Amino acid sequence: MFALVDELHAWNKRDLWDAIKTGLVKTPGSLLVVTTTAGIGRENIAYDMYSYAKQVASGAIVDEAFLPILFEASPDEDWRDEAVWRRVNPGLFCSPPYPDLDGMRQMVREAEYRPSDRAMFRQLHLNVWLDGAANPEWDLAIWDENGARYDLEALRGRKAWLAIDMAKRIDLAAVSATIEMDDGLFALHVMGFTPEAQLRKRADNDSAPYPLWVEQEWLVACPGDIVDRLIIEDYIRELCGLLDVQEVVFDVALARELMENLEADGVPVAAFPQTLMNFAKPVDTFEDMMLNRRLCHGGNAALRWCVGNTVMMRDQNDNRRPNKARSADRIDLAVAAIMSTARAVAGSSGLSMYETASDDAFFF
């Protein structure tokens, strides 16, 4: 039996792929050939296969039944260099060349002035695997350098600042805790919440491995068809029992009742209106912390996915706010992380929410 799978990077769901794989093992001597250009994001079938192929090619995995043939440019190579094109596209040595060389040159001329076209050229013609959005706000290679592990229990009693990005009843919600560590570092502990009943369907819709992230404890699957806000409230109370929580900030639009319940029990709560001006300083702070490698996110895969998806709204002064409408996929965990990190940096410096919030912030 023989199967040829073409452009696997464009397959958003696993059902057909799983059917082909399981069907082939029923016949001895079956052959599966996969041909694909690079894709976007790591949470998909194609990246799983690509990652496996890289490990077989390097010798990290020994699999004599798997033959990796990889033509790809390095992410830091000059995408305008025709020598790179020829190395990555062996068809250019054919007569006539494939793809058309003059056509590629025209694409490069246009891509000089259009970043989205540049990303497309690098992905589809140079096989450079892209992360998240086609034009992401941040370099995930730098984000990964902030991936130091931490022991949450060992941080018991440390000062922490929490942020909640609530969702509509069926969407993804997030709780982020930024925890003060030694030497100017902060642990970034972020948990997502999603309904359990349609976990696999939503994973297909979002092209994200939600079931795997639940197993890895980056997500909590709430029983039923909606995000259970009582589960989120209990989780916040657990963090308040473990950490010295200085402040919990919310987008009040979807969390007013939760704020009132916590405030009634003496938890310090504050509103964080989701306006551009209210996000401008926090986005800068979060970016500075990341670029200076002062965050320890523990390799949270769900958070990485959200950070890689993040696209910003900007004004004429380059003030920025995360833009859920323009982001290709969900960014909820990243939004919560920006909020909690900004509050932690301000709080650890001795500044209160009253001193650092914009004029449109208000409090209970």
Results as ranks from 00 to 15, higher is better:
361 A>H: 15
74 S>D: 13
331 I>M: 04
29 G>I: 10
217 E>S: 08
337 A>Q: 10
56 V>K: 03
228 D>V: 01
75 P>V: 05
189 H>M: 06
15 D>A: 12
329 D>P: 00
69 I>P: 02
97 P>E: 05
114 R>A: 04
131 D>T: 14
195 P>E: 01
154 A>H: 09
287 E>H: 15
196 E>I: 05
273 P>K: 11
49 M>T: 15
57 A>Y: 04
3 A>L: 06
289 M>E: 06
59 G>R: 01
108 V>D: 03
108 V>S: 02
108 V>G: 03
163 A>V: 15
239 L>D: 06
187 A>C: 13
198 Q>M: 11
264 A>C: 06
301 A>K: 15
79 W>C: 00
163 A>N: 15
125 H>R: 07
209 P>H: 00
154 A>I: 08
28 P>R: 11
157 G>R: 04
137 E>H: 13
335 V>W: 04
48 D>P: 03
310 T>W: 04
15 D>W: 08
360 D>T: 07
283 V>M: 06
200 R>F: 13
331 I>P: 08
147 G>A: 15
240 C>P: 01
33 V>H: 09
44 N>D: 14
274 Q>Y: 09
93 F>W: 08
166 M>L: 11
76 D>H: 01
196 E>S: 08
217 E>D: 02
70 L>W: 00
231 I>F: 08
271 A>D: 15
338 I>L: 01
264 A>W: 09
83 A>T: 02
190 V>S: 15
287 E>F: 12
327 S>N: 11
159 K>A: 12
346 A>M: 10
124 L>C: 08
151 D>E: 14
220 V>L: 06
153 E>I: 07
